[in-house]
C-alpha cells in the first residue's frame, strides 16, 4: 500500500525539477492536485502503460490542463514517458508542454488547456462504457475556476440525464483562480448544494489534513453520479507556494529559489 504523504512529497520535489528545466509552468496549480492524482493513479483507477495499451484502463482526464507538471511526473514514474521527456519540458522538440497534448503524450486521453472541455469528453466515454456493458470508469479533475465555464454545467445536466455513476467528477477546490479568490472573481457557493441540485451524489474531502479519505470516498457505492469536492490549497505542500497568488504565473526562477522551494516541501 502506497504512503500518500511520501509519494506526494516525491512528486512535488520532482515537479520542481521539471519546472526548473523550462523555468516556467503553473506550479501552485500542479501542487494542489498531487494527492488527488496519487490516489487515482496509484490506488483507485486501473491506469498504467499495460492497461492503456490493452485499452482496458480507466481513463483519467486532467481537465484543468495547466496543472500538468505533477501529472507528467506521475506519468514518468509509471513508465508512460521517460525522464528525458521531463527534461524537455516546454522545449521545441519535447512532447511535454504547458498544457498536455493527447497525440504526443502516452497516457493522456484528450488535450486539455482550454477550460470546460474535460467533463463533456468524459461524458461521451462514460455513456459508451455503459452502453457496451463495460465496467470501466472515467475520472475527471476540474479546477474550481473552471466551474465558471457554462459548458461544465451543460455536461452536468447530461451526466444526470444518463445517470453516469461510472463517471467520477473531482473538483480541486483550492479557492484561488488566476486573478484572485474564487469568491471575488465569480463566487461558487453554495457549491455543494449547486451540484446536489444537478443530481450528483456530492462528497467533500479535506485534502489538506486527511487526503487518505479520498480513497474511502471513491470506494463507496453511488446510486447517482458521484462528485467529490476536494478542499485543497493552491500550492499545497509548500510553505512558500500555499495560497500565494504571486506564484500562479511566476516563471524565471533562480536556482537558489528552486532550492528554497525544495526546502519548503513538507
Amino acid at each position: 500500500m502506497i504512503n500518500i504523504s511520501q509519494k506526494s512529497k516525491q512528486i512535488r520535489l520532482k515537479s520542481l525539477d521539471v519546472f526548473s528545466y523550462a523555468n516556467r509552468g503553473h506550479l501552485p496549480s500542479a501542487f494542489s492536485i498531487v494527492e488527488i492524482l496519487v490516489t487515482l493513479y496509484y490506488q483507485f483507477m486501473n491506469n498504467n502503460p499495460l492497461s492503456v495499451t490493452e485499452n482496458t484502463h480507466d481513463p483519467i482526464i486532467l481537465s484543468k490542463g495547466h496543472g500538468c507538471i505533477s501529472l507528467y511526473v506521475i506519468l514518468a514514474d509509471l513508465g508512460f514517458i521517460t525522464d528525458h521527456d521531463l527534461r524537455s519540458f516546454c522545449c521545441k522538440d519535447g512532447i511535454l508542454g504547458g498544457h498536455p497534448t493527447s497525440f504526443k503524450i502516452p497516457g493522456v486521453e484528450v488535450s486539455t488547456g482550454s477550460l470546460g472541455h474535460g467533463l463533456s469528453f468524459a461524458t461521451g466515454m462514460a455513456i459508451t462504457f455503459k452502453q457496451k456493458k463495460n465496467d470501466r470508469k472515467v475520472a475527471v479533475i476540474l479546477g474550481d475556476g473552471e466551474c465558471n465555464e457554462g459548458s461544465v454545467w451543460e455536461a452536468a445536466l447530461s451526466i444526470h440525464k444518463h445517470q453516469l455513476t461510472n463517471l467520477i467528477t473531482i473538483i480541486d477546490y483550492n479557492k484561488l483562480q488566476s486573478y484572485s479568490s474564487t469568491e471575488e472573481v465569480c463566487p461558487l457557493e453554495p457549491f455543494k448544494q449547486k451540484w446536489q441540485s444537478f443530481g450528483f451524489s456530492v462528497h467533500e474531502v479535506d485534502m489538506i489534513n486527511t487526503p487518505e479519505q479520498l480513497l474511502n470516498t471513491l470506494n463507496q457505492d453511488h446510486s447517482s453520479p458521484p462528485l467529490i469536492i476536494c478542499h485543497t490549497l493552491k500550492g499545497l505542500g509548500s510553505d512558500i507556494l500555499e495560497n500565494n497568488l504571486f506564484w500562479h504565473h511566476k516563471n524565471k526562477v533562480s536556482q537558489s529559489q528552486i532550492h528554497e522551494l525544495k526546502r519548503s516541501i513538507r
Binding site: 472541455h117 469528453f121 461524458t123 461521451g124 466515454m125 462514460a126 459508451t128 457496451k132
Partner: peptide
Amino acid sequence: TMSAGMASQ
C-alpha cells in the same frame, strides 16, 4: 465534445 468522447471509444 461529448461526441468526441464517444468517438474515442
